[in-house]
Design a protein around this nucleic acid. Structure first.
Lengths: 340, 340
DNA sequence: CGCTCGAATGGTAACGTTCACATCGCAGAG
DNA sequence: CTCTGCGATGTGAACGTTACCATTCGAGCG
C-alpha cells in the first residue's frame, strides 16, 4: 500500500489536483474542453507524480491496443531490416508500438504464428518480404484484422493489401543498362521461386530480354546467400562464358564475383555483374557493384501509413502510391554505356 | 450486439459449456485443478467459438503485460539483427511478445525513447549494442523496470545488467593468429569510441600487443561503414605499408580490402586483413576474410533468459554464463600460420 | 429577478479478466 | 447417521481507464 510500490493512477493525480479522475481523463484526451487553470493544476500533478496512463486499462476500455504487428521473414537480410526500422519509426510517430515477430522457417508455422500475433492484441499486421508460404495464413488472419503486405506481389490475394517496390521495373532497367554497354546475352541467377520479389525480378528479366531482343537464360534458384551465387556461377562457367550475370540480389552477386575471381576472369572486362538491393558494402566490393537501390525505408513508411489509414477508418489515403520505383546504381562491375 | 461483431469473452464460453466464467479461467490457468470432463466441455466450447483471452484485460488485472521491449541501435547491422531475431524467437517460446524500438541517432533522444518504451507497458527491456549515449537514460529507466543490456561492457552501470560477448578475447585471438603468421606489427582501425564493443576490441588489441611483444597502432575511429574503412586505409597507406590491418568489423574490412586492391596491393601477401563479426558474405569477399565469429544468436537467447528470470523472480539463473566467447575464423586474407 | 442554456465538472457503469472467498457435494471417520 | 474435510465450482470485487449521463454554476435574456 506504500505509494512508492504502486504506479500512480488517475485517482492519485485527481486527488493531488483537487479534481475528479474524470477530469484528469479529459485533460489527457480532450484538453480543449477543460478550463485552463484546472488543466494546469492537473498537468502539474501529473508531472509531479510522474504519472503515465495504464496502457492495459486503456486498451481494455477502448478495445484499441495501439499495437501493430510486424511479421518478417529474415531480419538479417538487408531489405527487411531497413524496412522494419522505417516502419518502427513511423509507427512511433503515429502513436503505435511495434510488436515484432520473425517468421521461423518451416512449412506450416505461418498459420500458428499469425494466430499468435493476432492473439497478442495487435490492431493490424504488416507482413514484410512475403513469400508464397505465408499467403494462405494471412488471408485467414486478414478476416479479423487489417493486413498489409510489403511485397512485390501486385495481385491482391484475398483481403491482403500490398505495398511494394516495382521489382520488374528494376530488372528491366538492369537489362537496358547491360544492353547499352554492348551486352547481347545475359544469365540471370534467380532467387527462391516461392519469394514474390524473386519471381517479379525473374519475370521482369525475361520480359525485358524479349522486348529488347536479347539472348539470355535463367539459372538457379539460389537461396539469397553468397554460397548459392558461388555454386551456381561454377555451374554456369562449366557450360561456357556468359557476357553478363544478373544476380537476384547483392549477396548472390558477392558469390558470383568470388567465383569469377577464382577462375581468373576479370569483371567487367570478361563478364559483367549486376546485383540487386544496394546492400551496405556493395559500393566497396571488388569491383564496386552495379546494382539496383530499393527504397526500403520509403516502402516501410508507405505501408505503415496505409495500415494506419485502414485502422483509423480514413479513406485509403489516395496520395500515397502503393508501388514505388527502384533506382539503378551504375558502378564498376559493368562496362560503361556506349554513347552512340 | 450481434455475436459476430464482438469477440467472444469468457462469459460466452462459460455459457456454452454450462459452467461459470471462473471455471473457464481455471481451465486456462490451472487445468489440473478442474475435473477432466468439465475441462473437455470448456475446451470444446473454446475451440468452437474461436475464443482467445483478451490480453488487455489480463494485463490490467495481473499487471503483467507479457511484453518485452527490445531497444536496438541499428537493425541493419548484422549483429543486432541476428540478436534481435534470436531474442524474439526465445521470447515467443517463453510466452512473451517483443516490442521493438530502434534508437534514432541523436544526442538526447535516449531518455525520451526509454520513457516511451516504458510507457508502452513492457515488463522489462533489452538493450542491444549499447553505446555510451544510452547509459544514463537506461540507468534511469532501470529504476522502474528490469533492464538487461547486450553489450561488451563488463562493469555494471547502475542497475543495468549486462550479457555480452568477450570482445577483448576476440581481439586477443586475432593478434595471436597474426603473430603466428609471422606478423610483427599491426594497425587496428577502431570503431566509434562511444560504442562499448569498439572500445573493448580496441583495448583487447592494445593489451594483446603488449602481452605478445608486438608493434602496433590504432587509427580511426571509423563509423562501422565500408567507406570509413576505405578512407582510413588510404590515410594509413600514405604513411607507409603496414604488415597487417585489423578492422573493427567486417564492413570496415570491406573498405580496407577495396582500398588495398586499388593500390595494387595483394592480400595477404603484402598486407594481411582481419575483420570482426563474420557477416554473411565475409567468406566470399576477395579474398575470403579472416574474421571473428560472434555468437549473436546465443547472446540474444542468454540475455532473454536472464531478463525472464529477473521478471519471474527466480534466482538469477546461475547456469547461464553472462559472457560468451567469440571464435576466430581463419580464411584467406591472412597468411597460413607457421608450424614451428 | 426568474428562467433557460451551455460550459465545466462529477458520478456511475462497464470493458474482460483474475483473486479471494464462499458454497456445494461427497467421501470417510467417529 | 452426523460431522469433518477436501476437491470442485460459483460469486463478488477489483484492476485503471473511458463512455455516458447527471449535476452544478454562472451568464444572458425577457
Amino acid at each position: 500500500m506504500s505509494p512508492a510500490l504502486r504506479r500512480p493512477s488517475m485517482g492519485d493525480v485527481a486527488a493531488r489536483a483537487g479534481v475528479s479522475y474524470q477530469t484528469v481523463s479529459r485533460v489527457l484526451n480532450e484538453p480543449g474542453i477543460v478550463r485552463p487553470d484546472t488543466r494546469d493544476r492537473v498537468l502539474t500533478a501529473i508531472s509531479e507524480l510522474g504519472y503515465t496512463r495504464n496502457r492495459a486499462a486503456r486498451a481494455l476500455k477502448t478495445s484499441r491496443s495501439s499495437l501493430i504487428g510486424v511479421l518478417t521473414d529474415d531480419l538479417s537480410l538487408f531489405g527487411p531490416a531497413e524496412t522494419t526500422t522505417a516502419i518502427e519509426t513511423a509507427a512511433r510517430e503515429a502513436g503505435y508500438s511495434v510488436v515484432l515477430t520473425s517468421m521461423p522457417h518451416g512449412p506450416h508455422s505461418a498459420h500458428r504464428i499469425g494466430a499468435e500475433l493476432l492473439g497478442s492484441g495487435v490492431e493490424g499486421i504488416l507482413v514484410i518480404a512475403a513469400h508464397e508460404g505465408m499467403t494462405p495464413a494471412f488471408s485467414a488472419v486478414a478476416r479479423s484484422t487489417p493486413v498489409v503486405a510489403v511485397s512485390a506481389q501486385p495481385p491482391h490475394e484475398a483481403g491482403v493489401e500490398v505495398v511494394g517496390i516495382d521489382q520488374g521495373r528494376g530488372a528491366h532497367e538492369v537489362v537496358e543498362h547491360l544492353q547499352r554497354t554492348g551486352v547481347r546475352s545475359i544469365v540471370h541467377i534467380a532467387g527462391p521461386t516461392d519469394w514474390f520479389d524473386a519471381r517479379a525480378r525473374r519475370s521482369g528479366f525475361t520480359a525485358a530480354l524479349e522486348e529488347l531482343g536479347l539472348d539470355g537464360e535463367v539459372v538457379g534458384p539460389g537461396d539469397w546467400t553468397p554460397r548459392s551465387g558461388y555454386e551456381l556461377t561454377e555451374a554456369v562457367l562449366r557450360s561456357g562464358l556468359p557476357e553478363a550475370i544478373f544476380a537476384a540480389n547483392d549477396m548472390i552477386a558477392i558469390g558470383v564475383l568470388h567465383a569469377l575471381h577464382e577462375h581468373g576472369l576479370r569483371v567487367p572486362e570478361d563478364v559483367a555483374v549486376v546485383g540487386f538491393d544496394n546492400t551496405l558494402g556493395a559500393e566497396f566490393l571488388i569491383p564496386s557493384l552495379t546494382t539496383v537501390a530499393q527504397p526500403f525505408a520509403e516502402v516501410g513508411r508507405a505501408a505503415l501509413r496505409h495500415l494506419v489509414s485502414l485502422l483509423e477508418g480514413e479513406q485509403p489515403a489516395p496520395e500515397s502510391p502503393l508501388t514505388l520505383a527502384p533506382r539503378l546504381v551504375v558502378r564498376r562491375s559493368t562496362r560503361p554505356e556506349r554513347t552512340h
